[in-house]
């Protein structure tokens, strides 16, 4: 079994009286696709933000890429990529300019950026849009671009927060092909989703209900254990216990 790149113990986040994330513990191994599932409001995004150094844990500890999530956030940030739920490239910058900016702030050299940009755009069949303002791109392409930007600097781990919201199944499938390519390069993928077909693509999934992790295993094991035919059924069985209303 390969080493763990994310280790979390009793991680908790409270906002006033509300416990968004309630003592969760898990490990993510190098090179795997780890699915982080849960209904809206289950605490997925909050947990992920703590792992990325965007939010401080209230309790518990953990490491990402070997750095402490409570104290070494800026070290973690050097070693990860992140794609948020809300599309977040600069709309008023062109495709190549967005790549150049984000690669640049991760310390890549301009020459290397230029060469790799062309290589990437060719591979994606996206060379014609090099000079297009990101604003003008269709959503599916924006998502592919945002993902490519998130792994452009070759991070150890990439965090994806509901990366495929709002696009059709074919576009989602294409997106997942990019994820597999990233895994082949040795990048660990941590992805939240509430599409159960996507859950099937993951090596292991955890399912969060009301801030706690209710189940964690490979999709196959989970289905076997819960005597379910699909991940969808697994999810329904677990999510039924939820007390919290979705936001």
């Amino acid at each position: 079994m390969s080493e763990a790149v994310i280790k979390v113990e009793n991680l908790t986040k409270r906002f006033g009286d509300f416990t968004a994330v309630d003592h969760i513990s898990f490990e993510v191994r190098k090179g795997e696709i780890f699915g982080f599932l849960g209904a809206n409001g289950a605490g997925k995004t909050t947990a992920m933000r703590m792992l990325c150094g965007l939010s401080r844990p209230t309790e518990g500890h953990g490491t990402v890429a070997g750095f402490d999530i409570a104290r070494q956030q800026e070290q973690i940030k050097k070693n990860i990529g992140y794609m948020s739920q809300k599309f977040s490239l600069y709309n008023d910058l062109k495709v190549w300019e967005n790549i150049r900016l984000f690669a640049g702030i991760y310390g890549m050299k301009p020459k290397r950026i230029a060469a790799k940009t062309d290589e990437l755009l060719n591979r994606l069949g996206f060379m014609a849009e090099k000079n297009t303002f990101v604003e003008k791109l269709p959503l599916g392409w924006k998502q592919k671009l945002a993902f490519s930007v998130a792994i452009f600097h070759e991070p150890q781990i990439v965090f994806l927060d509901e990366p495929t919201g709002g696009v059709d199944p074919i576009t989602r499938r294409q997106f997942w092909e990019l994820i597999y390519e990233a895994v082949e390069q040795g990048i660990t993928v941590f992805v939240t989703t509430h599409y159960m077909d996507e859950a099937e693509y993951c090596d292991r999934v955890s399912i969060m209900v009301d801030g706690r992790i209710e189940a964690l295993d490979s999709p196959r094991e989970l289905k076997k254990r819960m005597e379910a035919r699909s991940m969808d059924e697994v999810f329904r069985q677990l999510a039924r216990k939820a007390q919290r209303s979705a936001d």
Partner: peptide, 13 residues
């Protein structure tokens, strides 16, 4: 508002 600040915040800038 546009969410780009989060992308900056999650980088080592």
């Amino acid at each position: 508002e546009q969410g780009t600040l989060e992308q900056i915040n999650v980088s080592p800038v």
